[in-house]
Design a protein around this nucleic acid. Sequence first.
RNA 1: ACCCGGAUGGCGAAAUGGUAGACGCGGGGGACUUAAAAUCCCCUGAUCGCGAGGUCGUGCGGGUUCGAGUCCCGCUCCGGGUACCA
Length: 809
Amino acid sequence: MEETPPNPYTPSVVEPKWQQRWTERGTNTATLDNPKRPFYALMMFPYPSAEGLHVGNLFAFTGSDISARFHRLMGHDVFQPLGFDAFGIHSENYALKVGAHPMELTPKNVANFTRQLGRAGFMVDWNQKVDTSRPDYYKWTQWVFLQLHKQGLAYKKAAAVNWCPTDKTVLANEQVEGGLCERCGTPVEQRFLEQWFFRISDYAPRLLNNLEWLDWSNVTRQAQRNWIGKSEGAHVTFDVQGHGERLTVFTTRADTIFGATYLVLAPEHPLVNTLTTDAQKSAVAAYVEQTTKQDLISRKSTREKTGVFTGAHAINPATKQPVPIWIADYVLMEYGTGAIMAVPGHDERDFEFAQVFALPIVRVVAGADQQADTPFDGAAFTDDEGGRLVNSAQFDGMSVTDAKREVTTWLNTQRHAEAVTNYRLHDWCISRQRYWGPPIPIIYCDDCGAVPVPESQLPVELPNIPDFKPDDSGISPLARHEEWYRTPCPTCGKSARRETDVSDTFLDSAWYFLRYPSATRDDVPFDAARTKTWLPVNSYIGGNEHAVLHLLYSRFITMVLKDGGHIDFEEPFTRFRAHGMIIREGAKMSKSKGNVINPDQYMEEWGADAFRMYLMFLGPYEEGGDFRDQGISGVRRFLDRLWASVRDATTEGAADDEVLRKLHRTIKKVGDDTANLAYNTAIAAMMEYINVVRRGERAPHRDEVLPLVQLVAAYAPHLAEECWEALGHTGSVFDAGWPAFDASKLVDDAVDIVVQVNGKTRGKVRAATGAGQEDAVALAMADSGIAKFVTDTPRKIVFVPGRLLNLVV
RNA sequence: ACCCGGAUGGCGAAAUGGUAGACGCGGGGGACUUAAAAUCCCCUGAUCGCGAGGUCGUGCGGGUUCGAGUCCCGCUCCGGGUACCA
């Protein structure tokens, strides 16, 4: 038999050993009450799919875990909880597909996720877990709804949903592909249903302004700014000829009013019926119906302009000329006032429309080299930089910027305009005509109307019904269960009906971070003292796919709870960082490509520590990385070498001075990089260090390897614990703190100074630390390899102390 | 179309305006071994040269600077997000 190396690193032994110890010793349990330096580290909780943990989840969680463990090493009391976003259409659709019930499937998936998460070795305080589909959680989701209702921020109105006439069911936007139902291929229609909305648009200015000071990834803040879509403009009012009615439009280009040659209303506009003349009634009705028959997605993506004349005319308040009123689906009811003044000369869409229907196009803005009568060259003139007004009476010659203001003021004096700020953000529809979600806690009584369920009667439990599939009624499956929805009115006691819609999953996740510290309390949604101690969240890490919806809704709900007096902060996440996406061998991972990584398999073969570390080594955490199968051997080799160094470490003699200098530089770099989520370069620095420690199979000194164990702990927690123990400690390395570094050890006695001649590097000289320019020049000129390029007396000398000398001749 | 990112060796990637390619993968050579694996050491951008050494090189074209992968202007391509938003 061959001689095997003594005591090799065996993750399959080390990892379970420490996972068990952590559980036994409560290593990952946070000190929730009276912590000294509380630090709430949050990662976005996963949706527990049947496929199990995706490598993308693992990538995200590992980066978050490293940050949390690092903060703990730096002396914080870190609370890092995790839970499951278990409600929602994904779970429900999957259950439908496999013919199982979500109430049975979900606990199984949660158990599998919990196993996988444990296997990966995350520092999660499982005592405080959350599962949004359990009554002890959604009781409080319903409570949140009631707070909004109480504050007048929840209301009901009719709104369009996607409807599949074959499956006879409501579809989510992602279930519509190119205007067709993803399951049966039938063209999808719109239906108008009464639904619950939250007035998030009231909060638009606050949501926008706070972005200025939030410590969040720029990409995320920018995405939210775009989504909120602040737009400065004016409401302009047109009198309708022969009617008492007036029409108000929103425009950002009040300056072009003289070129407004027609108006367009959204087909759903409430005045369409009133304004349409008898002659046009049937054409308009047909068009409105055709629009309705289209799904929401393809209506917004087809670019061909269609529309119908209503037969009515309005008076342009600037020109006093009558202009025709049309309806067209390119005008959206949900933005602005659902009506526009069309200026075909200076708006691409209006131009296209005017071309199709031969409507007049008037130039009212001229560019630098254009005149009032310069013809349009087949396109609208939208470049307003340096444009001057033409064909606009007293405003001729004025710049576009000035005219926006002046025209609005002028129209305002005639009560025809008002400067307004409009937001793209519209109210949040939380109704889902589905089963797998928290029932909306409202009871309809014929006498009392829509009555909120009293808080004392929460939760409104989701019944376990076998037939949870949506049906042809267009309303929730719960509506088929009279025994469930019949209930006495809380106000008058008469027989009444429960709301049968459930709420949006985004409501579940819009407050979950408040629940974690208080997850074991069943008498309150969140304990006042714990909330004060732990919130707002110190560090939130997650995917930028949630940049808008989840993060915006969470901010909104937090503001509402603050306004309701439940909490004393209005921004939930002090710091947010978006991680990147992980691809494989240059291609996106997908089931259809069959290139999805199975984390279990990799952890089995290489160990969780190696897998974690490899994921972090792929590239910058905030940008993502390319998973190449062969690459993992590199980090595994590093861990093998680390273990061997600990195993072979000696206490005899003293540590090598050179190695110690490298060590102190490494402590600094790993600390700085880890704090900045620059995990890839932190790992590279540790690899560099171990290359120095092990160079030529030298036996390292204990003092050289011990601090490295602390540095690597956040990255490879199991192995670090094992090493820490092997070095004679009984406690956890995570309670050992961060190694001290000696700044004086960062500087050498001598440094290399790069020497350039005319900006070209020609060599380097070794100079004493702190050497001045004259010393450096002397050393450079003494080097024949450098001096030969210095053909004349230097005209100019650039000297960067300790770094560089540039001789310009 | 708009808003963000990004483009650097065979590959994943590093580089406060200061030696481009750290670290890792892959490849080549060597040591150890009967042998292989593992481990360890060295080499590995292109090109010219026997060599010392030189020249070129960070998507493209300009500019600023003693000096540009990095800053500025104008493009090209790729990725992500939003999208008839008036």
